[in-house]
Simulated scan of single mutants.
Amino acid sequence: MMIWSGVSEFVAVAETGSFTAAAKRLRLSVAQISRQVTALEARLNVRLLHRTTRKVMLTEAGAVYFRHCSHALEGLDEAERAVSDLQSTPQGKIKLTAPITFGEERIMPLVNDFMVLHPQLEVECHLSNQLVDILADGYDLAIRLGHLPDSSMIARKLSVRRRFVCAAPGYINRFGVPHTLSELEQHHCLVGGAGYWRFVEGGKARSIKVSGPLRCNSAYALVDAALKNLGLIQVPDYYVQEHIQQGRLLTALEPYCEPDEGIWAVYPFNRQLSPKIKSLVAYLSEHMSAI
Rank of each mutant, 00 (worst) to 15 (best):
S8W: 02
V11I: 07
A12D: 05
V13A: 01
A14V: 04
A14P: 02
A14L: 07
T16I: 07
F19E: 08
F19R: 11
A22R: 02
R27W: 03
S29C: 03
A31Y: 12
L40E: 08
L40W: 06
E41G: 03
E41R: 09
V46C: 04
R47G: 02
L48D: 03
H50Q: 12
T52H: 11
M57R: 14
M57D: 14
L58F: 07
T59M: 09
A63P: 02
S70D: 10
H71R: 15
A72P: 06
L76N: 10
D77H: 12
R81C: 02
Q87S: 14
S88M: 14
Q91A: 13
G92N: 08
T97E: 11
P99S: 08
L110Y: 07
D113I: 05
M115W: 04
H118Q: 13
P119F: 08
P119N: 10
L121Y: 03
C125W: 02
H126I: 10
S128A: 07
S128L: 07
Q130T: 12
Q130A: 14
V132H: 12
L135G: 09
D140K: 09
L141P: 01
R144A: 13
I154D: 11
L158F: 05
R163I: 08
F164Q: 06
C166F: 04
A168I: 02
P169C: 02
Y171Q: 05
Y171A: 01
N173A: 15
R174F: 05
G176S: 06
V177T: 14
P178Q: 07
S182G: 06
E183Q: 13
E185G: 06
Q186G: 03
V191L: 00
Y196R: 00
G203H: 09
K204V: 12
K204F: 12
V210R: 00
S211H: 01
P213L: 04
R215H: 03
R215G: 00
A219W: 00
A221M: 10
V223T: 12
L230H: 14
L232Q: 01
L232P: 00
I233Y: 00
Q234T: 01
D237R: 04
D237P: 01
Y239D: 09
H243L: 11
Q246W: 11
E254H: 04
Y256V: 10
E258P: 00
E258A: 06
D260N: 12
I263M: 05
W264S: 09
V266E: 09
Y267M: 09
F269P: 00
P275C: 03
I277M: 07
L280G: 04
V281H: 03
V281L: 07
A282E: 11
L284A: 07
I291N: 14
